[in-house]
Amino acid sequence: MTRPVSALAAVIAAAGLLAAWELAAWLAGIDGFPPASRALAQIPRILTDGEALLDIAASVQRMAVGFVLGVAAAVPIGLTMGRSRHVAAFFNPLLMMIYPVPKAALMPIIMLWLGVGDASKTLVIFLGVTLPVIYHSYQGSRAVEQKMLWSAAAMGMGGLSRLVRIVLPAALPEILVGCRTGLVLALITMVTSEMIARQAGLGNILFNALDMAQYDTVYAMIVIVGVLGFVLDAAFERLRARLVAWAAPSHAIIAGTT
């Protein structure tokens, strides 16, 4: 937000949330809302269960593959859109149409085509990641100073080399903002697609526990997914800050979801 939040403040905030949860659960006293302490007690069991761990690892792997492929495809598209009005005009309406469609909702159709395996889930994550990364790369590329490109052209740089050597680094801060949103989206799409496909993975464990009324496990999984989201975001932010130390600090992400 406006001020950088210290790690200590974040820890205190997390502890406060857990305390509030504990208290609310005691006061509510319903089965479907166990106190934090009971849910947290389940986490070691889940994380030492080999099968669950393999499942989670497979989820994270799909997410990583989808994310990397998504970024690799989206950045060139976004950068060229920013430098050519025609390319931008070509992609913009299509992107506008895809924007409000939940990518995870394509799961049933994609499963028809590609089966229930890794390919479908990875494709859905890929689709979820590309949109914000394209958008931010586009904005970043569009904002590149025209004069900078003129001087590069005067030095004899060709179109492609200008895109790689000038536009890419100049747009990097904005691209990384897109990647940060994309990373959170990858996680969201991963969990959601697993909730819909119900074959394997974090989302599946979560809903299986719900079906079997193992409420402590449900909440423990929610905490695990939440922590995963927070850690991924914080780690990426650290990387981003290092890569583009020269640029102005970015705000917390505004855009993002499913």
Binding site: A13, L17, M195, V225, A252, I253
Partner: peptide
């Protein structure tokens, strides 16, 4: 800061 990156779904 803690809650925003948590997948709300």
């Amino acid at each position: 800061r803690v809650l925003a990156p948590v997948p709300k779904i």
